[in-house]
Every structure is written in C-alpha cells, then in structure tokens.
Design a protein around this nucleic acid. Structure first.
Lengths: 218, 218, 218, 218
DNA sequence: ACTAACGGGACGCCCCGTTAGT
DNA sequence: ACTAACGGGGCGTCCCGTTAGT
C-alpha cells in the first residue's frame, strides 16, 4: 500500500492518476528499455495526457527513478519480513520465492530491476544499492542458518551470501531471457536443489529439499 | 586485370573501415542501450561519415545484429576449443575464465551480450540461442567430468549444467553492476569455490580448488 | 454588515496579492521578453500559485497589459507634475531626471517600456501612445521655454520636442545595453550638455548647464 | 557578398539553402522576438525542412548568432567605407544614411539589431560591441570634422561622438515604434537639422544643412 | 566502387498557458 | 484561491535516402 499520508485536500483523484501512471510506467519499462519506452505510450496506457504526467513527474528520468524506488520498497519488504522468522535457511528460501512471485506478477518490480541494471548510467547510485542490500540480507540469513545448525559453520558467511545472491540473479536473468519468467519458480527450485548441498549440513539436506519442493509447487 | 587489383585495394580498405565501424559499434552498444547509442557517434568514433556507415550496414538494426553475430563467434570458440580437452571440469573452469577475459577486454563481446539480453524484442531469436548453447556445452563438460571421476555420478547432468550457466551469468551481471566487470575474476574464483562442493566428489575438491586459484590469479 | 467587514478583509488580502503579482511580473517582464517570461516563475516570485494568478488576471496578456498601464500611470505623473512648474526648460530637465530614476529603480516601469516596445504586436496601440505623449509634453515645455526667453524663438517647436524625446530614448537604450542603466544619470547629464547649445539662447547656456549638473549629481 | 571560400566540394546547393535560411531568419527575427519566432516558420519561409535547418545551424540560438554576425558585417562596412572619405562630417551623415537604408531594406540588419538589443541575455557579449564600434567611428569622424574646420574645436570628441550615436539610436527606435521605419530618413534629416548647430561652426551650418537635405531626399 | 555532403521527415521530451473541480 | 489536469506545440535530433564527387 502506497503512502498517501502527505495528501492534503482532494488528492484522491491525484493519488489515483499517479498510481495509474506508475503502473503504466511499470509495464513500459519492464517491456522496453528506458529510451525505447515512450512517455506518450505510458500516458495513453495510464489514460491521462502527457500534461497530467508532467504534473506528477518532472521528467522521464524522474518517473523512472520513482519506479525504481517503488520496486525497491516492494522487494525490500520480502526480505525484511522474513528476517523476523526464527529459521534462517527457510527465510531465505521463502524470500526467493516471494521475490520470484513479485517478478512474475508485478510489472513495477520487473521495471525497477531492468532500469537499475541496464540504465545504470542514468540513475547513478541506484544500481549497487539493491544488490548490496540483498547480499547483506543473505548474510544475515546464512548466519542464522549456521546458528540453527542448518549451515556448515566453517563457511565464509559473506562469500556464501554473495554466491546465493548471484545465483538467484543469474537464474532470474536466464529465465527472463528464455521464457520471460514463466519458468522462474521451477528454475529456482532446481537452483536450490543443486545449491543447498554446497553449504548445508548433510543431515538437514533431505528435509530442506522437501521444503523447497513444497514452496515452489504451490 | 588492372580492374581486379584496384578492386582488391578497395576491398582491403573497405574491410578496414568495416572493422573500424564494428569496433566503434561495440564500444557504443556496450556502454549504451540500443536506442541510446547514436549512429553519428559510432561513425565519429570509427572515423567515418554516416554515409560510409550506411554503405556497409543497411541500418542501425543491421549493425547491431552484426555485432551480436561477431560476439557469438568469438565466445563460442572459447567453449568449443576447451571441449577438445580431455578433462571435463578443468575445461569448464578454463572456459569461464576465457569468457571472463573476453567480457572484460572485448567491447564487442560486451555489446553483443547487452544487445541480446536487453533489446531482445528487436532481435528475436538471438537471445535464447547463446544461453542454450552454453547450457549444452556445460552439460558436455559435466558428462566428461563424471567419466573423469571428478563429478558425483548421481547428479542430473542437465540440471547441474544449467545451474553452472546460471551462476556464471549471475556473477557476471552482478560484477557488471557493481564494478563494471573489474572484479569479475575474483568473483568467479569465489563462485567456483562455493559451487564446486555441490557436485564434485570430495576427494577431488582440494585439487580443483587449487586449480581454480591458479587460473584466476594469473 | 458582518458580511461587509469580512469582505473588506478579503479585499485587503486580494489587493496585497494583486500588487505582489504585479511586482513579480514587473521583475520578470523587465528581465525577460514576453514569451521568455513564464507565469509559473512570476507566481513563485509573487509567492502565490498559478491559480491565484489567474484569479486576478485573465491571461498572461492581460497581466502584461496591466503592467504597461501601471508604468504609463507612473511615468505620466513625472511630466504632468512638472508642467505645472512655471519654468519650461527646467521642467524638462527635471522630468528627464525623474524618468531616469523611475527606469533605474522601478522594475514595473522598465517592464512596461520593454513590453510596449518589443512586443508591440501583442499590445497594439500601446507602443505609439507613450512616445506621442512625451513628444507633446516636450513641445509644451519647449513652448514655455521660448516664452521664458530660454529657447531661441525661431526653432520649430515640434521638431525640437521630437528631437529631445528621441535623444532621451537613445540615451536610455544605449545605457541599458552597455551598463544596464547604471550610468544613465551621467549619460543624461552629458546629453543635456551637448544638446542644450543647439536651441538654447547663448545668454542662458551657462546657467542651465550648471542646473543640469546639480540635478544629475545629487 | 557572403564568404564561401570555406566551401569544399559540392557546396553550391548548401550555400543557397544556407542563405535562404538566413534570409528567412532575418524576416522572422526582425518581426518577432527571439522566442516568438518559431523555427518551423523560418524553415517554411526558407522552403526547407527543419532537418535541413538543423544541418546548417545547430540550434535556434546558433542561427540567431549567425544573423547577428551577418548584420554586424553588413553594418560595419558602412562606417569603415566612409572613414576613407577625407571629409569628416560628411562621412558621418552619409554613414547614417547608409545605415538607415540598411535598416529599412535589409531584414537581417533589423533582425540583428533587434536580437542584440532585446535578447542580450541570450547572446552575451554581442550587445555592447556594435555600440562601442559606432561610438569609436563617430569619434573618428568628429576628429576629422574638427581638423576640417567644420566642428568647433573646443568640444569633447568622445562626448559628441557618443551623443551622435545615442541620438541616431533613439531616432531609429522611435521611427520603428511609430511607423516601422517608414519615416526614418525624414526623422534623420530633422535630427541632423537640430543637432548640427550644437557642435558645428556657424559658418559651415548652412552648407551642411543643404547637404543633409540632398542626402535624405534622394 | 566508394565516400561525403546534404536534405527530409518524424517524433520525443519538455513545458507552457489555461481551465475544471473544490 | 488552489490542486489537478489538459491540450498544444517547440526544439532538438535521429535515422535515413539521395545526389554528387573521386
């Protein structure tokens, strides 16, 4: 739910159009590259004029930045929410599943991802942050996993966290390229299946694999 | 006869210009997205006029396709060459190192990668192919690795091959985002370090890790 | 009754805002050309919203016209006031000094001048009027100067009046171009110094030159 | 005649269109203010497309600067040519007449004048130069006039030169405002008639006035 | 054969003046 | 009096033929 606390008077309509524009921008920027996406199309998709668009967003760049921010908000929740869970590994797996869900269902998330990876030069500073965040989150999960006795305690927390994040990223990129994210859940399931043995203690392997299976086959 | 020799001279010069344009396009398309890259700049970078550019390439699109093809050629060699090597795992590791080298040093490779991932809609069919190729190559390497006794023989060859390719992709993407590929070798080294235990037989682990180290720290 | 007092309050506030807008418009139109000046900036400078601006002025054009009128009011006073003075030449000199003061200190005067000269097509009829007015005023002053015995009685009253007005105009334009009106008083002093001998009776020359000096070196 | 020495190959056509655009720009910028003038109209008037216009001039600003330069070239010739004349005052009068002719007949001259006066902020440095140039020219003429015995030798050369330039400017501005330069020759004739007695030696007055008459009534 | 100069349309983004709704 | 939205272009400029030189 977006924050509308800053609303003053009759911002109801404004809020609606703003959301519509953001939604349309999400569709556009997730399908096309930044320069390929045209403001006119976004406005049309949102059912507003370019003038209205300009009222809400000062420029195309500004609009894209807003999309990135929104995506970051949305995705961050997935991780932070799961970090409250007492179990480490399980939280990590669930996070990846939630993220996958967001990517496959929410155009804004896809748009934010795409914008911040491929147009990094236009939005300096917005690229590294999400990756950094996720590496840190993964680290925390791994640390919890170790104290849970799920993860081998001799591993380098940072290295494993980074690796998990990179593998997730790669899986998502490849899934996008090959099936436009249609098979992302299956790919993630396989990813965990291969990856878990790399750092999970042998005794917990079977149980965790079953867990992965159940999560990605809902 | 005189005509032919003259034409040869001309063809020589034409070849040079063509290569210069391709090189300039590589720089442009690796730095900018397809629509952000401007033909004028490419022409200037190549030291030719736009007219010359259009003499060699029918359109901007055509130029990009040519870059993609060139990249595919370049990168394919890495894999096919290594497949002749009798050792499976080692070929895989070397391939990843060669690819990394190409990515960090050859703009055309970067350009081809970028074009085929982010402007897939403009070059339909060019996206899936490279991934597919690499998955197949990985499978072959894994199969060799199993018969070498390096890889656990119970693994699913396809799944492991896919996973390796995805992790490599993810590592490359993250490296690009965070350091513009500057730390790709280190990241790959760590990738292998974490990943190998997932499917390598325990007895070969130590040796292979040493091998990885030596390859990425030249 | 209660209604009226409340309305008075509102009218007071309305008057203040209106003046603020007019002042801001003066600054804008004196610095920029009509089309270069933006309503949004004027509104911001005045500390009101564009909506408020449109409450007071029907259009940008209307606002400009109002500025021109205000300037005309302001400047006219200078001449008419001095015409009450019994001495002709002296009134003329003082008028020129007052006008100079207005130009250098009052943005609205500058704005009105600029608007009515350079955007004459947008405000038809507003260009000639001020010049015409001033020519007539000058004529009256010259006529008084003749009957005072200050001005050679053989001169053509209209021609001399016109010439004075033109020279003043030119001096002002050049001063604007070269120092943004900073040296207008000095330039006017020199103007009178050179110009007076052209139509003043020789006996009065010295006295009038002293007078000019005192007026422009306050 | 414009300089086409920098032409390389087949610039004949280019030269023609360039001149056409400059001419059209002259018409536009002399009639409208810089921002009121639209590139599309200029292109249409010149019989070319906006694309062609962009080929010759990088921007609207650039086009305007080119107009100003051209005007400066044109007008400068008037003064420098006359400075070769042995007679001072006469050269001055003729110069003013030539300038008047240029203003009334050549749109580019009018455009340059208008642009450099009213949009000075957009073309910094281009405003003061012409005035400065003309003041210097006037000074030279006055100095020659003194040695010719035409001008009273006690006058301040700089002050008189400045005054002449300012009066000319004012006359031109007023003529523009009131009749769109239609009566500029008559106004200049009257200007000289009133102004000459201010600094010309009495014995030469009659002759010079006759000369003025003949020059402005051709 | 190959190159360079030149010109042509076509939008895209920006943003501006202005009007409804409250 | 203010927030929100509307149309309507303007400028920039891009990608691309076409014509003329070498």
């Amino acid at each position: 739910v977006a924050n509308r606390s800053k609303s003053h008077v009759k911002q109801e309509r404004a809020f609606v159009t703003r959301e519509a524009i953001l939604r349309a921008a999400g569709i556009a920027f997730s399908t096309l590259s930044f320069s390929e996406a045209k403001l006119l199309n976004i406005a049309e998709e949102a059912g507003v004029t370019q003038g209205a668009l300009y009222f809400h967003f000062a420029s195309k760049n500004d609009l894209a930045v807003e999309v990135i921010k929104r995506q970051h908000e949305t995705s961050s929740v997935a991780g932070y929410e799961q970090l409250k869970d007492p179990r480490g590994i399980e939280g990590l797996i669930i996070s990846s599943q939630i993220l996958a869900k967001q990517i496959t269902t929410d155009p804004i998330v896809r748009a934010g991802l795409r914008l911040s990876t491929e147009s990094s030069n236009l939005f300096p500073g917005y690229v590294e942050v999400p990756y950094q965040d996720w590496i840190e989150n993964c680290e925390k999960f791994v640390r919890k996993g170790i104290s849970d006795g799920d993860i081998i305690d001799s591993v380098d927390v940072f290295e494993v966290g980074t690796f998990i994040m990179e593998s997730f990223t790669g899986t998502q990129v490849v899934s996008q390229a090959m099936t436009h994210w249609a098979d992302l859940p299956q790919r993630l399931e396989q990813m965990w299946k291969i990856m878990l043995p790399a750092f999970v203690v042998p005794e917990r392997k079977a149980e965790l694999l079953a867990l992965v299976k159940s999560y990605f086959q809902n």
